[in-house]
């Protein structure tokens, strides 16, 4: 591929992980559409123990904060709010690359209960990259006012990942969210996302290519997801993946705890 490293223009995993991963036990990503109350969830979980850039990064900047649950330290990384992970905008690439390359111990996807269908689009995309997902159906207080009911148990069954309803502004459901995140991060619970089923042509193409992808890449990156990206011909992403694969061989992509992990723990 003719793209240079520079031209992918994105933060490298290492840069993104300058988050001093040494003094925390788990790294948790927080994804979601814009306007889902994601920042409220973030603020409610981390309180004032957070680093933001020069601006309270509503959409543009990285924010991170810590919380402690049952004597484990969790670092929460607030990803940019996006509708999708497919369009290659800067925000979407940051979010996608973080989930894909930094491999957080769990990813919380915040959904707006009043607009579930649109929000599920992002959740399904995240679940194609990683299985370690906890879905947080937020703004259920708004939904109640609008007389909208969301059946969280059924949603969890359909998606194959833990689901919790929350109203972050009044702290409702957040203790349960923290518990579910801890279950997934510590591998006590291993979510099995239901794959999206595509059109017949596409599924056939996936079936042909996926075994080859498995052979070449191993389990480092979800093979079905990578197969889809190959069929899509998303060269910018593929370049980023190539960089990631090769960076991982010459230098530890992530410092500290992560290195031990990849050395066979």
């Amino acid at each position: 591929m003719g793209l240079t490293y520079q031209s992918t223009g994105q933060l490298t995993t290492r840069e993104m992980f300058d988050a001093k991963s040494d003094n925390c036990d788990y790294i948790i990503a927080l994804a979601g559409n814009p306007n889902t109350g994601k920042s409220t969830v973030f603020n409610a979980l981390t309180g004032l123990r957070q680093h933001t850039g020069n601006w309270p990064g509503k959409t543009v900047q990285r924010a991170e904060g810590n919380y402690i649950y049952k004597s484990h330290r969790y670092r929460l990384i607030d990803l940019p709010g996006t509708y999708s992970l497919l369009s290659n905008s800067a925000d979407e690439e940051v979010a996608r690359d973080f989930i894909c390359f930094a491999r957080p111990d769990a990813t919380i996807v915040v959904l707006d209960a009043t607009c579930l269908e649109r929000n599920l689009n992002l959740a399904l995309q995240v679940m194609e990259i990683t299985n370690k997902v906890v879905v947080c159906v937020n703004l259920i207080d708004e939904a109640r006012r609008k007389k909208i009911q969301v059946d969280a148990a059924k949603l969890s069954e359909r998606l194959g990942v833990p689901v919790v309803s929350t109203a972050a502004r009044s702290n409702e459901g957040l203790p349960r969210l923290i518990e579910l995140v801890s279950d997934v991060a510590s591998k006590r619970v291993c979510p099995k996302p239901q794959p999206v089923s595509y059109s017949k042509d596409l599924e056939e193409a996936i079936a042909r290519l996926e075994p080859r992808v498995r052979d070449v890449i191993g389990k480092d990156i979800n093979p079905r997801w990578l197969t889809l990206r190959l069929l899509d011909g998303d060269t910018r992403l593929l370049q980023a993946i190539e960089n990631h694969l090769n960076a991982g061989r010459t230098a530890p992509v992530v410092h500290g705890r992560r290195r031990d992990y990849s050395n066979g723990a």
Binding site: L86, K147, Q149, L155, R158, V196, Y198, S199, L202
Partner: peptide, 20 residues
């Protein structure tokens, strides 16, 4: 097909779990 597949799935799931 990728985008359509994901949205269709989202539509079906939302249809099943949401009631107005």
């Amino acid at each position: 097909s990728i985008v359509t597949g994901i949205y269709r799935t989202a539509e079906q799931i939302a249809g099943d779990v949401v009631s107005h």
